[in-house]
Design a protein around this nucleic acid. Sequence first.
DNA 1: TTGTAAGCGTTATCAA
DNA 2: TTGATAACGCTTACAA
Lengths: 340, 340
Amino acid sequence: MVTLKDIAEKAGVSSMTVSRVMNGKTGAVSQATSERIRKIAQEMGYVPNSSARALASRSSRLITAILQEYDEDNNPLEDRYTSCFLGELALQIKQEGYDLMIHYVKDYSEITYSLKSWNVAGAVFIGMFDESIQKLQEDNRIPMIFTDSYSSVRSITNVGIDDYRGGEMAAKYFLDNGHRNVAFYGPEALDNGVVMHRLQGFVTTLRSAGISLPPENFLDLGVKDLGAELKRMCSGSDPVTGIFTTADKCAYQIYSAAYHAGIRVPDDLSVIGFDDLDMSALITPPLTTIRQDIKKKAEIACGLLMKNIKEPETPAENIVLRVELAERGSVKNRINGEKH
Amino acid sequence: MVTLKDIAEKAGVSSMTVSRVMNGKTGAVSQATSERIRKIAQEMGYVPNSSARALASRSSRLITAILQEYDEDNNPLEDRYTSCFLGELALQIKQEGYDLMIHYVKDYSEITYSLKSWNVAGAVFIGMFDESIQKLQEDNRIPMIFTDSYSSVRSITNVGIDDYRGGEMAAKYFLDNGHRNVAFYGPEALDNGVVMHRLQGFVTTLRSAGISLPPENFLDLGVKDLGAELKRMCSGSDPVTGIFTTADKCAYQIYSAAYHAGIRVPDDLSVIGFDDLDMSALITPPLTTIRQDIKKKAEIACGLLMKNIKEPETPAENIVLRVELAERGSVKNRINGEKH
DNA sequence: TTGTAAGCGTTATCAA
DNA sequence: TTGATAACGCTTACAA
């Protein structure tokens, strides 16, 4: 391993001088020595020891991404939304010259560990951490960026989207296309800020058009036989004609279940998703969905993080990104028969 | 920040004693002191400083996953195969008590940095690194696990699958179902060991049945208008009836292009994919594909890594996992008309 | 069973 | 513009 000292000896200077050069503290070192040292370091294949750096400077150029580890069969990175976000984050963080660790955490002690153990410069939280936020802030003074949080704690920096508006748009689109009996498919809403707001936007908009969602039109993610439920809904004298779901990946499940149950999308059942994953444009029929810009979210998360690292006194801010309707082919217009 | 020294003072012992306790070097410390120290550490919220540890012990409980950064529009983690592998790897590595960094790398110097800078205990390479392997091994003495490598360097530890066999199975399945004119869709094969072997297995099997793949039946990933190409192939006096592709995600593209071109899968065109991503069972028709066990691959990669960390003299081994045919609904039997 | 001393590679601080 | 020295928090090696 090549150290500062090795280079210093070869160059006939002190290791401090080398340190200054390696850190680009030019202006403090003469042009000539600087050049010479840089060259020697290059030749010897010097790579700075980040551990030593972190120890001596009490901070590191290291960011940790904290993901919630639901359970062992449900890996966060198997979720396309999450992997897409993390991928973009990784790219951005690299561009800023930082390194990235990923930490799956199950409980509070694991979060603490991941924050303190490596003297990380900052952290990005991916997933639901609303309950821990208060304590997290008291216990740590490092910049933390949350995503999609609806925590009541005002002093956190968060990047999210307008979930309520997304639900609104979906409802409005169903209404505009002549759907009067619609359903919802998603996780039980109350334990998740994001889902709850999407659902609220959806339900409220329907209600103001005089339409209510009866309990039997709520399909839980854990439902045993989705196809059978769909069949039940889509039959009878007043069949459900449209279903809104809280994530595109759930829409894919609906497509599959519908196919096997002999229900045609969108002729028998229209579907609106949420996220606009790249797959959504590829499936048949292409999925009409509420689009959010995941990459932009990651970009902003990284930007906020850097800002907070450089200026620790930056006030907390909550950024809400827009959503938009990606109009494709999974909703049937029941007025003129067209498919969007 | 709570340090060993803080705990030591509170407990009235030396920091070495605390260190021993924290590292579970029980047997070297009396039961009583051990208990007491553990309790104090707990109360004070002690978290070991990994940087200091790494520095002092010249090794860290840190693994780096090295991913190839193709270009900025093509993030490795957007690839479902990669994110699935990495997700499982993250889980496994956590279970072993190690931390995980991810490094996107573009050139050799970036690999070197990611290996040396943090004194990592080991590295897992995801993607193609065949050219660098030789130099990598000379420059570094840490355990390195490669995946899907067809490097000619014999002394590397690798986990891969039987790509050739996968191609073989696809060809055989087409033949068994009465397809005589088939095509291939994938990246230009020569620059990628995995693709090349899949293709070879495919082509060789066809050839021994007296069938050859004319150049116009090779579709490049970069083709401008996939739908038009498909249309061209599927028309004429001797239309292509089946297409094999090197990854499920490419099969999805085929589905989409076929749909828009008015080509029915599998009635007009049968499709066989590779990987068996979770989406493949969900799309319509469900995709017949060559399945590989991505999670198992990650599990084995982690296992090999740990073995190499604990016993540095472990000889190199190349593990080849089986593939199998996931028979679903995207291949039509041209003999009896059934769809698999 | 416990402690002392030295040192890991770097940076902060102060002095020259 | 440069260098000496003392940390940073921990572990290794050895001593008691």
